[in-house]
C-alpha cells in the first residue's frame, strides 16, 4: 500500500497529464459521433456573446457590399414576381407556407479546418431546431447542428460529416454531396450512375429526398468528373456558387412538415 501511494506521489505530474489526456481524447471522440447532444461548442453563451459583440463592431466594414448583395437578390426576386403569374403571392399569409424562412447573421465562420462550423445569431427562441437547412442568396450553406437560446452552430458544407442529397438540375439523378477537405470552394458529388449524361458546367441543385432542404436550391456547377474505380459511378467535383470565405447574411429554412416526415420514416425503419 505504502508503495502504491509513493508511486502515485512520485509520478503525480505524469498521472495528471495522462488523466487530462484521457479527458481530452474522450471529449473529441464524443464530439465526433454525430448528433450526440453537445454542450461545448461555439454557440454557448460565453463564446456566442463574445463573437456577437465582435460581429456588431466589424459589421460596419462590409455594409456596402452586403447592401449590394441584398439589392441584387431583390432585383432577382422582383423580376421573378413580375414575369410570373403568381400575382397574389404578396397578399398571401406567410404562415400558410410549408417552408418558413428565418433570417440570421453569421457571427463566426471557419473554412480551413476539416470539420468546419459556422455560428449564427439566432437560436431556439427564434424557432431554430436541429436539422434545419441554412442557405444564402447564392446557394446552400449547411445544416443546423446545435442550438442554444440565442445562438446556433451550423455544420458547414465544408465538414467531413456533411452528407446532403443533391441532384443534377432538370433530371432526377440524385447522389450525396460530401467534402474531401482539399479545397474550400470545391465539394464532391457521389453515387451518380455512369449512364447519366454529364457536361462540365451543369448545375447541381438540392434533391427532393430530404426533409431539410426544399428541392432545387442551387449548390454549384460541375467542374470535373471521372469514374470511380468500380467504373459504375461518377465522382463529380462541384464548384460552389457560395464564396465560403465571404458570407454574412443567411436564411434558415424551417420545414413545417419535417416532424411528420421524420416520424413516418421512423415508423418504416421500426417496422423493418
Amino acid at each position: 500500500m505504502q508503495q502504491i501511494i509513493n508511486f502515485i506521489l512520485r509520478n503525480k505530474t505524469t498521472l495528471l497529464y495522462l488523466f487530462l489526456l484521457l479527458v481530452g481524447m474522450s471529449l473529441s471522440i464524443q464530439s465526433h459521433s454525430y448528433h450526440r447532444a453537445r454542450f461545448f461548442n461555439s454557440a454557448n453563451w460565453v463564446s456566442g456573446s463574445i463573437y456577437n459583440t465582435e460581429s456588431n463592431i466589424t459589421d460596419y466594414f462590409d455594409l456596402r457590399e452586403e447592401n449590394n448583395k441584398l439589392v441584387e437578390e431583390n432585383t432577382k426576386l422582383r423580376s421573378l414576381l413580375f414575369n410570373d403569374e403568381v400575382k397574389e403571392i404578396a397578399s398571401q399569409e406567410l404562415d400558410s407556407f410549408t417552408f418558413q424562412i428565418i433570417p440570421a447573421k453569421i457571427i463566426k465562420n471557419s473554412y480551413s479546418l476539416r470539420n468546419n462550423y459556422i455560428t449564427i445569431n439566432k437560436g431556439s427562441r427564434d424557432g431554430l431546431e436541429q436539422d434545419m437547412g441554412v442557405i444564402t442568396s447564392q446557394g446552400i450553406l449547411g445544416i443546423v447542428e446545435h442550438t442554444t437560446t440565442k445562438f446556433a452552430a451550423v455544420q458547414s458544407l465544408l465538414n467531413t460529416k456533411s452528407n446532403i442529397n443533391a441532384k443534377i438540375k432538370n433530371t432526377n439523378n440524385f447522389g450525396s454531396l460530401k467534402w474531401d477537405t482539399n479545397r474550400f470552394d470545391v465539394v464532391q458529388l457521389e453515387d451518380i450512375p455512369r449512364m447519366v449524361p454529364l457536361n462540365i458546367g451543369d448545375t447541381i441543385v438540392t434533391g427532393a429526398m430530404s426533409s431539410i432542404f426544399p428541392e432545387n436550391i442551387p449548390i454549384g456547377t460541375i467542374k470535373k468528373f471521372d469514374l470511380t474505380t468500380s467504373q459504375s459511378f461518377y465522382n463529380i467535383e462541384v464548384a460552389l456558387f457560395n464564396d465560403m470565405t465571404n458570407i454574412k447574411q443567411v436564411y434558415i429554412i424551417r420545414n413545417e412538415n419535417a416532424a411528420e416526415i421524420r416520424s413516418l420514416e421512423e415508423k418504416i425503419s421500426n417496422d423493418q
Binding site: 481530452g24 473529441s28 471557419s110 468546419n116 455560428t119
Partner: peptide
Amino acid sequence: VFSDTLAFHT
C-alpha cells in the same frame, strides 16, 4: 470551445 475543434488544442 471558441473554434469548434473540441479537444485538439487541449
